[in-house]
């Protein structure tokens, strides 16, 4: 922490700023040495040195996007920082942390991911609203309150879930005894009769790690891009519920689907 009680804050300069590490719980410092990082738009708060920010999907970066970025429609929310210097990242005073992946995979809620190294490949998850990072490298993610790591089997509250690594089985779990039957239906519809708000959880089993934040405040979701219009693709069919910012007008049979959105109609 930079503010010890009673003393002034510590002044940082490029020599004292850490390389690819946290400055404090809320600020992360990335060191660029002619290298590149992907970051979500608007998360850079300051930098030393000469760093360029380019929207991706722009000619020179095409190859990079092809190799480490796999959701074409999502691309407009991301920029590539390249150059040399030190760059500070932060997000609405939420806790930020970096994670290292070694030939691994990690799926994370789209709004929580701040930045990642291009050695990782970013892909849309089959679970709508989540992104999966595959490969080896470092990424930075934000959470409301510190992140806790849990081992499955575990059932977690949907709002507290940040992501999971290596777990093969994220699925819904309902408290059936409480939710079924005439009384259960009534309770669910009206909220009368004492809904605890905890009748629905996500369940994880198998080997892996589940990441939870210590609050149930969700971060604004980032659109993860449209999924192909195919039968059997979650989120790709007629129902886009749960896609967060993709809401908008309901889709009717015969409509062109996301083509309209692509063309801004």
């Amino acid at each position: 922490m930079t503010t010890q009680p009673g003393t002034g804050p510590v002044a940082h300069d490029p020599a004292t700023l850490p390389a690819d590490d946290n400055v404090n719980a809320y600020t992360f410092c990335v060191e660029l040495k002619g290298t590149q990082w992907f970051l979500q738009k608007g998360k850079m708060i300051a930098y030393y040195g000469s760093i360029d920010f380019n929207g991706i999907g722009h000619g020179r970066l095409d190859r990079l996007v092809r190799t480490s970025f796999h959701s074409p429609l999502h691309a407009s929310d991301w920029v590539v920082a390249e150059g040399s210097g030190k760059m500070l990242l932060a997000d609405r005073a939420f806790d930020v942390n970096s994670y290292d992946l070694e030939n691994g995979n990690l799926t994370i809620r789209s709004g929580n991911l701040l930045a990642f190294q291009p050695t990782l490949a970013l892909k849309q998850s089959i679970v709508p609203g989540f992104l999966t990072l595959i490969g080896t490298g470092k990424f930075v993610a934000a959470s409301n309150g510190p992140v806790v790591f849990m081992d499955p089997p575990i059932r977690v509250d949907p709002q507290a879930l940040v992501g999971w690594a290596d777990c093969p089985s994220p699925c819904h779990h309902y408290d059936h005894g409480y939710m079924t039957g005439a009384m259960g239906g009534l309770r669910a519809l009206t909220g009368l009769g004492g809904a605890s708000g905890e009748e629905h959880q996500f369940e994880f089993v198998g080997a892996g790690t589940v990441l939870l934040q210590s609050s149930e405040a969700l971060m604004a979701e980032q659109a993860t891009g449209a999924t192909p219009q195919q039968a059997g693709v979650p989120g790709g069919g007629g129902v886009t519920g749960g896609h967060g910012s993709q809401g908008g007008a309901p889709r009717f049979p015969g409509q062109l689907g996301d083509l309209q959105r692509r063309f801004g109609l």
């Binding site: 930079t2 300051a46 030393y48 760093i51 609405r92 005073a93």
Partner: peptide, 22 residues
């Protein structure tokens, strides 16, 4: 500040660029 402020030193050899919102 919203979240603890980070203090950055600017000197002749280290100019600094800041996002206006931060």
């Amino acid at each position: 500040s919203d979240g603890p402020a980070v203090v950055l030193r600017v000197s002749a050899q280290y100019p600094l660029t800041v996002d206006p919102g931060a």
